[in-house]
Design a protein around this nucleic acid. Structure first.
Lengths: 343, 343
DNA sequence: GAATCGTGATGAATCGTTTCTGGGATCACG
DNA sequence: CGTGATCCCAGAAACGATTCATCACGATTC
């Protein structure tokens, strides 16, 4: 399999007996060219299997037709769904998506900023992670357009596509309370993340609405990963049954799953002994036993819109208002009234 | 937020009072330059926040420091894990990964080939999908290096990182048979895919090894997706209990999950009424009830090795032999002896 | 018949790098 | 003191595309 030199515009021009500029004009029809010559060029392109060198094109055009997408981890299905949405929007416009997964073992900050500055991407879509590191965002935003997904930075006025986490959180918490639970605990996300704040705020609203002092319910901060869900559940459920919470409100599904796994491990039944709810509504959550009650975020759509917003930003310099996407409660089997009735 | 023109090498050269070539020499230390001048350049780079224009660099170098990765869908955790492995290997070498998800709504073939020909990527890592379309592979391989993951094309001699699907399949089927099952059925993958063929071959070996005629067990072809698992399970389990298979061997976890969901829907208990095994050992499979017995593929590692092989190919022109990765059976709760004993 | 205009084609400059070529210092040495 | 040899450095030619300025040539118009 010998790979020969790829044909360039000059080759095409020679083959079609025209000048390179003419070739360029017909390729992006950006100039007038007579039909016969146009056909000659098109023929030459076909027989030589010419395809333009995008590096050269990008150099001249000062744009890369490429966007970056930083995702904390792909194995989290929520991120995977968002990524698919981004990909779809980009693919429709012939824009490439380069994947950036900040490796924990190195400083991603400088790397990401450098990426943007090197003009290999025109803009970036940023999914904030399981940790908190808005520092790199500042770097990024300073040197190119950035659109946030499911995150907002108080200081900056970055465009962001988010959904109404607060409302979703309020509703799912209200559902738990409506079942009669009075001793509840919250397994929250990393306090530095906007989503964690929003969801907690929603929970507190619902709790207050049920006539309970929000400050009286324990709130533990997890990291949105399964392991922390299990660890925090253990911590919360350690006490005697009489004072132990009867419901766990988890700020995402992964932590809810961890909590459920812990319950199973120590012989607590879900939902009879303890009710659990999550957030995100991962596809797998409906497959669990019990099927997890959660709050669905339109992940795919969020990714799609974020990409669309980024393209608007790149083309028109301004992104259309993005609005607030809905977050809808999915009622399933992981919530039941507390055994002893209201306490 | 006004974005000013990015500094170029010329700016750096002027600021450091040297020539552009000197700047280039110090930046990739490819030439001798006196210490003081070197420092002047480095300083200038720092104060101007210079970072090289990769498009220009790529144009000159005839390489993009970028690879493409085509994955059928990201929401499949197996692919997500492979993708993470690829990303990690690439990131370690400062290579970018562009994500290509062949959209079902358009012809991906020409698009992928064009991508490679446009020199925006140096090579491609190809994860074969839920369908079968080796046609695009030929196009791809003709114009650039390609490494396959979990797939092999009989005709071509493409480098591929695969694991011993056949052995894994044989062992998991043997386990099922060892429990006493005699009426079994196979829900296979798309017959055109190498993995489907390998796994089926492994199953048949085990079946023959148990003294059963492999041709007597029904084999239905699915598409590796959950839906087809459910549909085929319905088809298989439709008959009366006396003749209905007591074990379903599924060629991947997603279809196994679909099958289990169908069983639940029609009131069949797993594993008491019907045993089910999968393949891939997705993280979620251990969370199901019953926990799914499956065959683990080292997905992350496969991605990592594939990327490494591609880099070898690009640098040395030859990829080190890749070997066969292990596929190990994970015994869990979805298999039990058949109710009536051996039939 | 000369001036004007529009169409269609071309040459050349340019984008920001890398790298080859050549030439001025500096030094050792006969 | 002249002659190579050694070291650094600057200039300029690529890389492959886009695009501006120019120009040739018929067709209109007065």
């Amino acid at each position: 399999m010998t790979r020969r030199r790829r044909p360039t515009m000059k080759d095409v021009a020679q083959h079609a007996r025209v000048s390179v500029s003419t070739v360029s004009y017909v390729l992006n029809d950006s100039g007038p060219v007579a039909p016969d010559r146009r056909n000659r060029v098109l023929d030459a392109v076909r027989v030589l299997e010419y395809s333009p060198n995008e590096s050269a094109r990008n150099l001249k055009r000062r744009s890369a037709s490429t966007i970056g997408m930083v995702v904390p981890e792909l194995t989290n299905q929520f991120f995977a769904m968002v990524a698919e949405g981004v990909q779809r929007a980009a693919s429709a416009r012939d824009v490439l998506v380069v994947l950036v997964v900040p490796d924990a073992t190195e400083q991603p900050e400088e790397k990401q900023a450098k990426l943007l500055r090197s003009q290999r991407v025109d803009g970036v879509i940023y999914l904030s992670g399981t940790g908190s590191m808005p520092a790199s965002i500042y770097e990024l935003a300073r040197s190119g357009p950035v659109v946030l997904v499911d995150e907002q930075i108080p200081g900056l006025e970055l465009p962001a596509v988010v959904c109404d986490s607060r409302k979703g959180a309020r509703e799912v918490a209200a559902h738990v309370l409506a079942q009669g639970h009075r001793r509840i605990a919250v397994i929250g996300g990393p306090p530095a993340l906007w989503t964690a704040q929003q969801r907690l705020a929603g929970y507190r609203e619902a709790i207050a609405g049920a006539g309970i002092d929000p400050d009286s319910v324990p709130v533990l901060a997890g990291d949105y990963r399964q392991g922390s869900g299990a660890a925090l559940a253990q911590q919360i459920l350690a006490g005697p049954a009489a004072t132990r919470p009867t419901a766990l409100i988890c700020a995402n599904d992964l932590m809810a799953i961890g909590a459920i796994e812990h319950c199973k491990a120590v012989g607590l039944r879900v939902p009879q002994d303890v009710s659990v709810v999550g957030f995100d509504d991962l596809p797998l959550s409906a497959l669990l036993t019990p099927r997890l009650t959660s709050v669905r975020q339109p992940a795919h759509d969020m990714g799609f819109r974020a990409a669309t917003a980024l393209f608007d930003l790149l083309e028109n310099g301004e992104s259309g208002s993005i609005g607030l996407l809905p977050a809808t409660v999915q009622l399933r089997d992981s919530v039941a009234p507390p055994l002893g009735g209201a306490s």
